[in-house]
Design a protein around this nucleic acid. Structure first.
Length: 878
RNA sequence: GCCCCUGUGGCGGAAUUGGUAGACGCGACCGACUCAAAAUCGGUUUCCGCAAGGAGUGCUGGUUCGAUUCCGGCCAGGGGCACCA
């Protein structure tokens, strides 16, 4: 029987600040660039300083901290920094609402959130803290922008842009979701503006190809980026225009197609309303001009564009088929053709494309099948479908296609490409292979105040002139007002007036600021030497630290942030600011934190704090605390203010301590999946904190721990449990499977408390338990660092747990002398047979056949076959 | 519409990647301690069955000595992209 000595409860509220102060005083987490140990860079996506951290942050940073602390224990020089993604709209909104300056609001939020993050006990090097709104940061961003421009990676062009009418600013394509602004939710309009662009399309091929090298990224994210870049391989084909019908000066029409194999199924051409040919044709046809105008007006809202009916207008122009001068097809203007993809013109093959067949049906154009499945039944079905208006879009064999007949899709593609490439029109080949991308250039101009000023000056004489680097940073003016819509920089009385750096004449500053995604596209590089005032990066530092070994953040950044950062890093490489192309070697995207919702009868949502849960054998019921009325338990959803199902990290840390919050966040759910925050779960985590503490206290009190002799069977089992847990946690931290790490730790604690409960602790058992407890605390340390320090101290170890090296695994302990085979008869488990680990196959078979349960299952029949998988399983086939 | 992912107890999930399905936690139930409760400790907990035994990883076929794992078809849920030629 256990002695059941009483130990004081572990008091997180006293213990946690104490250890944090010691870590701070010892400068435990300050990282030196010149440290000779091998480097490891672990980074969590830095937060926007909204004012308070939320549970998503807790989960993200708890995971990153496990990796950082583990790698530190493994002997790495770990870089684990933190900063603030501090520019953006909310600061301006707050300025408007509360009449505070965005900077005041932002820095107050940073201070508040920093205190919250500190209370989590993260092993961060706060000396490297950066805020993107600080001139000492954006100064370098401006310098890089100028370098990028000189390297030809920045462009100023007139373009149709996504205009958010609520935020009164331009949005990148990536920031338009379902036709609405990603922040405001307003229906986005199309507007023609002169804007600054980053030429990300110059890297389209590289950004696509290099995805193959990112083998430590989630497949899902790579796929999303691949789809976003949207590479397609096709053919540019030049069609001659029938001169009798074409406007003057137009002799040919270039189209882009990925299906040149279907060329003999062509029944019409379609061009964008903004296509030069459409404009020329409009000049002599008022009805066509009206149609094009209408299409353009439709285009003001992205949403309208998507739901719009597919319509066309016959220009009267005919195009000549590249393989048959006698074959002429009509040229339509169509509202669904995009001017900025391919050439803004297509040929339509109705039998092989859903949209084309709809169009052909509507305008009574021919529908000729050219590809069908090779087998007879498939062919018949496909022909029937096409006749009924359903296209056949898959590969197959060619029909109705002259010299292509009988060829496969691929062969026909190549045949057409080769034949047309060797023919010429006006001295150029009729067709050439061409790769196209869906990816558009990154428009970075924002008509906002709270962002990084674009360091350019517009001079009437000299044109657009970069601000000389000696004049950087272009600082935001402090005295701005937010009392009217639009860009406060534009309204400022003096800021934008400046002398031209070249000719000295009065000139105008660029008042657009940079998309805040620019700020987060290089912060990971700045962390490597944030003290360098002269340049964005220091070669020795940036090139030894990058790439980030492990980056952790939300899946919502799968496209925007991660694609921009990959581009920016390449641009930095090109301009000499870094020597790598890929910023993030390993990427992990964690799931969301979700919580039950509670909805009162009148439809209002209640917070978890306003209700009480009763659970019994027949389920869980919720009651409102104020009036005891029963409340409906709703779906489990992402924590959000609108559903009122949020839990404040401060409350949890105040009640249970940071370790409990961290432990619960890491347990149960696999980190890439959503985790359901439950009060029961947190209490369970809190119970374990107490249990771990008690076990360590009990073991610390044992006598005979310095035993150095033979370990008996029981004590060996305890040691084995410890080393199995060590092996398991090591393996699973490396693979970021934190829920399994937690399970291994629980198993070890069960083994230790089981041994303690038996009582009569022999000296060898005491020694085994002490060894096990030491390992236990070290396994705990990356996840519950404060508790680990307290246990480390009570066990009498010198120094800090946070400074201890990872325990050494005794592999021999994991292997037992004997092995118990599960024995199946005809695939069903019937017995366990224990034999020596080294027993030869014949001996295993003999032991199995001698087993009574096996004999019973065989019912006297001789076994047909015995399959022995060494150290796995035995299956007897009867 | 196209592309991708996921379906395992009351719940979150585990399963050495083709080898004992349900580790670990939560919840529930039983017991100990207690005047009592909380806390703590011990036990039970996939389903049917008193048991022997049988069934069982969304459904349905297949491959295999053996399938949660591989292949085909279907169903359900989630995500991404969406006039991209």
């Amino acid at each position: 029987m256990s002695q059941h000595r009483e130990y004081p409860r572990y008091n997180a509220r006293e213990s946690e600040p104490k250890w944090r102060k010691i870590w701070d005083d010892e400068k435990l987490f300050q990282t030196k660039n010149e440290d000779p140990r091998p480097k490891y860079y672990v980074l969590e996506m830095f937060p926007y300083p909204s004012g308070r951290i939320h549970m998503g942050h807790v989960r993200n940073y708890a995971m990153g901290d496990v990796v950082a602390r583990y790698k530190r224990a493994r002997g790495f020089n770990v870089l684990h920094p933190m900063g603030w993604d501090a520019f953006g709209m909310p600061a301006e909104n707050a300025a408007m609402q509360n009449n505070t300056h965005p900077a005041t609001w932002t820095y107050a939020n940073i201070a508040a959130m920093k205190a919250q993050l500190k209370s989590m006990g993260l092993s961060l090097d706060w000396d490297r803290e950066i805020a993107t709104c600080d001139p000492s940061y954006y100064k370098h961003q401006q310098a890089m922008f100028i370098d990028f421009m000189k390297a030809g990676l920045v462009e100023r062009k007139v373009s149709k842009v996504n205009w958010d009418p609520v935020d009164q600013t331009v949005l990148a394509n990536e920031q338009v979701i379902d036709g609405r602004g990603w922040r405001s939710g307003a229906l986005v309009e199309q507007k023609e503006l002169t804007q600054w662009f980053m030429k990300i399309t110059d890297y389209a091929e590289e950004l696509d190809a290099a995805l193959d090298t990112l083998d430590r990224w989630p497949e899902k994210v790579r796929l999303m980026q691949r789809n976003w870049i949207g590479k397609s391989e096709g053919l540019m084909v030049r069609w001659a225009l029938d001169q009798a019908s074409a406007p003057k000066g137009f002799t040919e029409l270039d189209i882009y197609t990925t299906r040149p194999d279907t060329l003999f199924g062509a029944s019409f051409m379609a061009i964008a309303p903004d296509h030069p040919l459409a404009k020329a044709a409009s000049d002599r046809n008022p009805a066509l001009a009206a149609f094009c105008d209408e299409c353009r007006r439709m285009g003001t809202s992205v949403a309208a564009l998507e739901t719009a009916e597919k319509r066309g207008f016959d220009t009267g122009i005919k195009a000549v088929h590249p393989f048959d001068p006698e074959w002429k097809v009509p040229v339509y203007v169509a509202n669904f053709i995009l001017m900025d993809y391919g050439t803004g013109a297509i040929f339509g093959c109705p039998a092989g494309d859903q949209r084309d067949i709809e169009f052909a049906t509507k305008y009574r154009l021919p529908i000729l099948p050219v590809i069908v499945p090779a087998d007879d039944t498939g062919r018949a079905a496909a022909l029937k479908d096409i006749a009924e208006g359903k296209p056949y879009v898959d590969d197959g064999v060619m029909i109705n296609s002259r010299f292509l007949d009988g060829m496969t899709t691929d062969a026909a593609f190549n045949e057409v490409a080769n034949r047309l490439a060797s023919e010429s029109m006006g001295g150029r080949p009729v067709a050439s292979r061409k790769v196209n991308y869906r990816l558009r250039d990154w428009g970075i101009s924002r008509q906002r105040y709270w962002g990084c000023p674009i360091p350019m000056i517009h001079c009437e004489v000299c044109g657009v002139v970069p601000v000389p680097k000696k004049d950087l940073p272009v600082k935001l003016p402090d005295d701005v007002t937010f009392d009217r819509p639009g860009n406060p920089l534009d309204h400022h009385a003096t800021w934008k007036h400046v002398g031209c750096p070249q000719c000295g004449k009065p000139a105008r500053r660029e008042t657009d600021t940079m998309d805040t995604f620019g700020d987060s596209s290089w912060y990971f590089a700045r962390f490597t030497d944030p003290w360098n005032e002269d340049a964005p990066t220091t070669p020795a530092a940036v090139n030894s630290w990058l790439p980030v070994n492990q980056y952790i953040g939300g899946i919502e950044h799968a496209i925007l942030h991660l694609l921009y950062a990959r581009f920016w890093t390449r641009a930095m490489h090109k301009t000499g600011h870094a020597a790598v192309d890929e910023p993030f070697e390993g990427l992990f995207t964690q799931g969301m934190v979700v919580h039950e919702t509670y909805k009162a009868a009148d439809g209002t949502w209640l917070t978890p704090a306003e209700i009480r849960i009763e659970s019994g054998a027949n389920g869980r019921r919720a009651f409102r605390l104020s009036d005891n009325s029963e409340i409906g338990i709703g779906d489990i959803e992402k924590m959000s203010k609108s559903r009122r199902n949020t839990v404040d990290p401060d409350d949890i840390i105040g009640t249970y301590g940071a370790d409990t919050a961290r432990w619960f966040m890491l347990s149960d759910s696999p980190p890439e999946r959503d985790v359901n925050w439950t009060e029961d779960g947190v209490q369970g985590a809190g119970r374990f904190v107490q249990r771990a503490w008690r076990i360590c206290c009990e073991i610390a009190d044992l006598s005979g721990v310095d035993h150095v002799g033979h370990f008996g069977a029981d004590s060996t089992a305890v040691r084995r449990a410890a080393h199995k847990a060590l092996s398991g946690v090591t393996d699973d931290v490396e693979r970021l499977r934190f829920n399994r790490c937690v399970a291994h730790v629980y198993e070890l604690s069960n083994a230790m408390s089981g041994a303690l409960a038996k009582g009569n602790v022999t000296p060898d058992m005491a020694a085994a338990l002490r060894e096990a407890a030491t390992i236990f605390v070290q396994l705990l340390a990356p996840m519950m660092p404060h508790l680990a320090e307290e246990c480390w101290a009570v066990l009498g170890h010198a120094g800090l747990a946070g400074n201890a090296r990872w325990p050494v695994l005794e592999k021999a302990l994991l292997v037992e002398d004997s092995f118990t085979y599960p024995v199946q008869v005809n695939g069903k488990k019937r017995a366990d047979v224990t034999v020596s680990r080294t027993a030869p196959q014949a001996e295993v078979e003999a032991a199995v056949l001698a087993d009574a349960a096996v004999q019973r299952a065989l019912e006297g029949r001789p076994p047909k076959k015995i399959i022995v998988v060494p150290l796995r399983i035995v299956n007897v086939v009867g």
